[in-house]
Nucleic acid binder design. Structure first.
Length: 550
RNA sequence: CGGGGCGUAGCUCAGCCUGGUAGAGCGCUCGCUUUGGGAGCGAGAGGAUCGCCGGUUCGAGUCCGGCCGCCCCGACCA
């Protein structure tokens, strides 16, 4: 197939758009792939839509390969369904004014509505999917296609009879996702996602390292460990402890309220200090979370250690519970519960004395206070791999896929049950598996570009070949285009009346994997120049060779 | 929702501090010369109620107030 650039709606831009920061945002806009309509709301222009559809097709093939059945569920969804599952109050849900409908963020309710037609274990398992628009009133769209308010998602849903079967479905989808990302040319890691907030259900994220993104991927340089930065377990360095004391010793630390200042003031390793973070539970009780002075408290992990709605304590609550202000708080003498990070299990630390302007040296867990231990710290640069002690890398990443085991969360309220072999009526066990092709596009660009533009992997490129026609070479260019097209390749024939430099610049920007140039040199020797976009390697081939070799 | 920034031509921006009748480059049209990495010369068209509303002033793109939109950081994120 041949498309003439002179007839396409393909507005490329010489300058970066003023409001773009992320590479993928800049290049996709400049290359004429996408345009913004309003914050987080985007149009895919002809070129962008071609890429989107290629990504879709890869996803479709891999879903079909594991037995997925494509269907299409509507966007408009009765709010009633969501009322039953308790998701109507999710703030991101768009409500349609003066109507009983909502615009859903995903389709679990709708798919479970249909799953009610499953009657017997004999019909299980099922795997259904569709590509459909999702609307989410995101508080903050950002980064071009990286986070948007409306997008097309491939969401798949599995239904199974028991946990064992759920596992099989889940792993099948995980495998399909790996193939999808591989085929799209994306380096992605499947990592266990934060599960605490979802009440123990299991989910896996696929994180693609990227120049910009909202997630942090923690990865061992030896390749044996990868995790979401929110919940990664990493091995912190061992502190240098001062001389051991038989009992805590009070010291005056006037005006010292941060661990950094404390370590400086006392001349001790900051890792040998402890940091107290009081939180208040719904019943009003104050719990003290304790981490090492050089660590940050992970809210996610604290939630895991102490489920329920807690929040940082107010100044008044702190004063009442400790008799001191923030900056001088510590576990010794505190009457409430203390949850201490594992790093505080051994050794003696400097802690707040619960007396403004004073700290205690030589505070030891188990001797001076009785904590409950938990993993509470945020992993950080310099930590070691929990598997082999190797160096950990912290990479900004984009979440390109999320697979989720939700059990009977939806089937129970929506009464989607089946009759099992033992004659018992049981709720279907579900899983959901999402990928946003638009975000995948952005991630591909984030991983494949240079200073001149995008370098699409062949599998998703808008066209296989960008054929640059220079003056006088129209005839041989057309022959070349037809030879390539006859070979099953999609050709962008740049027949615009523009200078060579501009055409080359556009070709680099748009990023088709192969560029063919027909120009003066072709007229001399009857051949064309074939250049690989990614490597820059160029060779001269006859039209006949083109058909065979490209 | 908190913090910061921005809003002037299709695009990228200057002008605002210090108020006085709106600018540049790119783009667009035509011609000639050029033509293998964003050309040169000439001619030309069109183009911004300076985001909106209000205020101050003889006079507001410029100063003041309010609002809206967009971007970035944070919070949030099925």
């Amino acid at each position: 197939m041949i498309h003439r650039a002179s007839q396409l709606f393909l507005p490329t831009l010489r300058d970066d758009p003023a409001d773009a920061e992320a590479i993928s945002h800049k290049l996709l806009v400049r290359g004429g792939f996408i345009r913004q309509v309003s914050a987080g709301v985007w149009t895919f222009m002809p070129l962008g839509w071609r890429v989107h559809r290629k990504v879709e097709q890869i996803i479709r093939e891999e879903m079909d390969a594991i037995g997925g059945q494509e269907m299409l569920m509507p966007v408009l969804t009765p709010a009633e369904l969501w009322e039953k599952t308790g998701r109507l109050d999710i703030p991101e849900v768009f409500h349609v004014e003066d109507s009983p409908y909502i615009l859903p963020v995903t389709h679990e309710e709708t798919v479970t509505f249909h799953a009610r037609e499953i009657q017997s274990y004999k019909q299980l398992p099922q795997l259904w999917y569709h590509f459909q628009t999702k609307d989410r009133d995101e508080p903050r769209p950002r980064g071009g296609l990286l986070r948007v308010r409306e997008f097309i998602m491939k969401d798949a849903y599995s239904f199974d009879r028991d946990e064992e079967s759920v596992k099989v479905s889940f792993e099948a989808n995980r495998g399909a996702y790996k193939k999808i990302f591989e085929r799209c040319g994306i380096e992605a890691y499947d990592v266990v996602a934060e599960s605490g907030i979802m009440g123990g259900k299991f989910s896996v994220d696929f994180l693609a390292p990227s120049g910009s993104g909202e997630n942090v991927l923690v990865r061992c340089q030896n390749g044996d460990y990868a995790a979401d930065g929110d919940i990664a377990e990493a091995v912190p360095r061992v502190p240098t402890f001062p001389e051991t004391l038989v009992a805590p010793e009070e010291i005056s630390t006037p005006g010292v309220t941060t661990c950094e200042a404390l370590a400086d003031f006392l001349g001790v390793d900051i890792a040998a200090t402890s940091k107290a973070m009081p939180v208040t539970k719904p019943d009003g009780s104050v719990v003290l979370a304790l981490v090492r002075g050089d660590d940050r408290l992970s809210e996610m992990k604290l939630y895991d250690a102490m489920p329920g709605e807690s929040r940082p304590s107010t100044d008044e609550e702190i004063r009442a519970a400790f008799g001191a202000s923030g900056g001088s708080l510590g576990p010794v003498g505190f009457a409430g519960e203390v949850i201490a990070d594992e790093t505080l299990r051994d050794g003696q630390f400097v802690a707040g004395a619960n007396k403004d302007g004073y700290h205690l040296r030589g505070v030891e867990a188990g001797r001076d206070y009785e904590p409950r231990f938990a993993d509470l710290r945020e992993p950080k640069e310099g930590d070691r791999c929990p598997v082999d002690g190797g160096t950990l890398e912290f990479l900004v990443a984009v979440e390109v896929g999320h697979i989720f085991n939700f059990g009977s969360f939806y089937s129970k309220p929506l009464e989607a049950t089946f009759l099992d072999e033992d004659g018992q009526e049981k709720p279907l066990l579900g899983g959901s598996y999402g990928i946003g092709p638009g975000r995948v596009m952005a991630a591909i660009v984030e991983q494949h570009f240079d200073e001149n533009g995008i370098q699409w992997p062949r599998s998703v490129a808008p066209y296989d070949v960008h054929l640059v026609v220079l003056p006088g070479a129209d005839e041989i260019a057309l022959e070349a285009a037809e030879a390539l097209s006859a070979n099953g390749l999609d050709v962008l024939l740049d027949d615009r009346d523009q200078r060579a430099g501009e055409k080359f610049a556009d070709a680099d920007l748009i990023g088709c994997p192969i560029r063919v140039t027909a120009g003066k040199k072709s007229l001399e020797d009857g051949r064309v120049d074939v250049r690989d976009r990614a490597t820059g390697v160029e060779r001269r081939l006859s039209v006949a060779e083109l058909g065979k070799e490209v």
